[in-house]
């Protein structure tokens, strides 16, 4: 799933390891989410949103909205 995680992380000068520690997941998990290889569960998506103090839809791009825009 497309997302702005890398941008938000870069704004805070956090490494993937730093973000992983804050979310209590591995650096590999952060990398997989950032690159869109893995879609986080809803609880993890909420944890990410709360950490960055943004609504989920400002961080993750809805796949259906993205495909409707493409049409």
């Amino acid at each position: 799933m497309e997302n702005r995680l890398r941008v938000l992380r870069a704004e805070r000068n956090w490494s993937q390891q730093d973000l992983g520690e804050r979310l209590e997941v591995s650096r590999q998990s952060v990398n997989a989410i950032e690159t869109g290889k893995y879609d986080p569960s809803l609880p993890l998506a909420f944890r990410i949103a709360e950490l960055f103090d943004r609504p989920i839809e400002e961080i993750f791009v809805s796949p259906s909205r993205r495909s409707s825009k493409a049409i």
């Binding site: 209590e24 997941v25 590999q28 998990s29 997989a32």
Partner: peptide
């Protein structure tokens, strides 16, 4: 395992 990506 609490890390859902590692679990997957």
């Amino acid at each position: 395992e609490r890390d859902e990506y590692q679990r997957m």
